[in-house]
Computed example of a mutant assay.
Amino acid sequence: MADIGSLEPLATFCGKCDCGCPQLFVDESAPPERRVVITDDFGQKVEMSADQFASLVEEAKEGRLDAVAAA
């Protein structure tokens, strides 16, 4: 897996500050089951497959995650 610093972010979540906002990356050099990487502003990361990420996106589109965003 490439160093996060060498990857180009696909999306930045927030971006209204300079605090290291969560970001979404695709690491083409990682194994398929760890290719999608989401980092948080505490230096942690979550790695998942493209299928897992697609499932997360579908859940969000269908409104099943709205309660989390409203909290």
Rank of each mutant, 00 (worst) to 15 (best):
E62D: 08
I4M: 01
D66M: 01
A11N: 11
E58M: 09
I4L: 11
D51E: 15
V57L: 10
C19F: 12
S49M: 08
S49K: 06
L65W: 05
M1L: 14
G20A: 05
K61R: 15
C17V: 02
P22G: 01
E62A: 10
V37Y: 03
A70H: 10
V26F: 06
D51W: 07
E59K: 09
F25V: 12
C17F: 06
E8R: 13
A70Y: 03
F25Y: 15
R35T: 11
Q52H: 13
R64W: 08
E28S: 13
F25P: 08
L56A: 07
D66H: 08
E59Q: 13
F53K: 05
R34T: 04
A69L: 12
E47D: 10
P32Y: 07
M48Q: 11
P9E: 05
E58R: 14
L65G: 09
E28F: 06
V68R: 14
V57G: 03
A11R: 12
A71C: 02
C21V: 05
M48V: 12
G63I: 01
V68M: 12
S29M: 06
A60Q: 10
M1A: 06
V46P: 02
A60L: 10
E47N: 12
C17W: 03
C14M: 09
E8M: 03
E28L: 04
E33H: 11
K16A: 15
C14H: 15
R34K: 14
C21K: 02
A2H: 13
A67K: 04
T12W: 05
S49A: 04
L65I: 12
A69E: 08
A50R: 15
D51M: 12
A54C: 02
Q23F: 01
F42V: 04
E59Y: 05
E33Y: 04
I4E: 02
D40M: 02
F42W: 05
A60C: 08
I38K: 04
S29R: 04
A54N: 11
V36G: 04
A30M: 09
R35L: 00
D40K: 08
E59F: 14
A11Y: 10
L56K: 06
E8L: 11
D51C: 00
C19V: 15
Q52K: 09
V26C: 07
S49L: 07
A71L: 14
S6Y: 07
V37H: 00
D66F: 08
L65E: 03
V46I: 13
F42Y: 10
G20W: 01
E33R: 11
V46C: 11
D41F: 05
G20N: 06
D40N: 15
D51A: 15
T12A: 10
C14E: 10
E58W: 13
E62V: 02
Q44N: 13
G43A: 07
D18I: 06
F25I: 13
S55H: 11
F53V: 04
V26S: 07
